[in-house]
């Protein structure tokens, strides 16, 4: 299995996913108080941060409030912020922290006795709409769909960050506050789980057709 090759798109294909140099310039301008850079930053990242946020909290207004506060804090503290090379993981991490903290606080007000680190992460997989849209009958896909529900929230989040936000594993690790190997494992374990169950049902389906 060509493991090293797998991660080579960190350097080789990185242009597909980011424009590191340009982002760096944008960040520097923002730190120096350039309003246009700030507006640019907002237009570029607000929608995808909102997309990420609503997966933790279905209450969209709550997420928007958090984003509002986050960007105002960034602006007010811009001179003291670190030099960030990759903005997406940095912003996702900041939003995630804020959301979890605010959610905890909210919960603490509502049910004062219970404060936990639990959080939900909601992703909707689109198999059904895909099948309908493309007017195809795909038995494998339908079978696979059943097993997507079995993924844990952390697996869902890793898959979301990997495939939807198209992030590198070290960035996923940073956002989720885990180490690199755990991030890789979360994605690989999910894929393995899906394939195992999928082939199992495939096999059972085959057996059931053979049995009288």
């Amino acid at each position: 299995m060509p493991k090293p090759d797998l991660f080579s798109w960190q350097s080789g294909d990185s242009s597909v996913f980011s424009d590191g140099g340009q982002e760096h310039v944008l960040w520097q301008a923002f730190k120096q108080g350039d309003r246009e850079a700030f507006a640019n930053l907002l237009n570029r990242y607000y929608p995808l941060l909102l997309n990420y946020g609503v997966r933790f909290q279905r209450d969209r207004e709550f997420v928007k409030d958090c984003l509002h506060d986050l960007f105002i804090e960034l602006w007010n503290q811009r001179e003291r912020l670190d030099d960030v090379r990759m903005l997406k993981p940095y912003l996702l991490t900041s939003l995630r922290r804020k959301l979890l903290r605010e959610t905890r606080r909210l919960r603490w007000f509502r049910e004062a006795d219970e404060v936990t680190d639990e959080y939900a992460f909601e992703v909707q997989f689109t198999i059904e709409s895909y099948l309908i849209h493309n007017e195809i009958q795909h038995e494998d896909l339908k079978r696979l769909h059943v097993h997507l529900d079995k993924l844990t929230r952390r697996q869902r989040e890793a898959i979301y960050l990997r495939f939807f936000q198209e992030m590198e594993y070290d960035d996923i690790a940073r956002v989720m506050g885990i180490n690199y190997h755990s991030a890789v494992n979360l994605v690989y374990e999910s894929l393995k789980l899906l394939r195992k169950n999928w082939f199992l049902t495939l096999f059972l389906a085959l057996v059931s057709t053979l049995l009288p």
């Binding site: 309003r35 700030f38 507006a39 907002l42 237009n43 607000y46 929608p47 909102l50 997309n51 609503v54 928007k64 984003l67 509002h68 960007f71 105002i72 602006w75 992703v123 909707q124 997989f125 689109t126 198999i127 709409s129 895909y130 795909h138 494998d140 896909l141 696979l144 769909h145 997507l148 898959i159 979301y160 495939f163 939807f164 894929l191 899906l194 394939r195």
Partner: peptide
């Protein structure tokens, strides 16, 4: 290919005006 399609994630649709006005508020 099947796995890739299966793992497609639904993206909630946001009214561009909604995000735009939120951005304007921050500005």
């Amino acid at each position: 290919k099947t796995l890739v399609i299966a793992l497609r994630i639904e993206s909630p649709t946001f009214d561009p005006q909604e995000t735009e006005s939120a951005i304007q508020q921050i500005l």
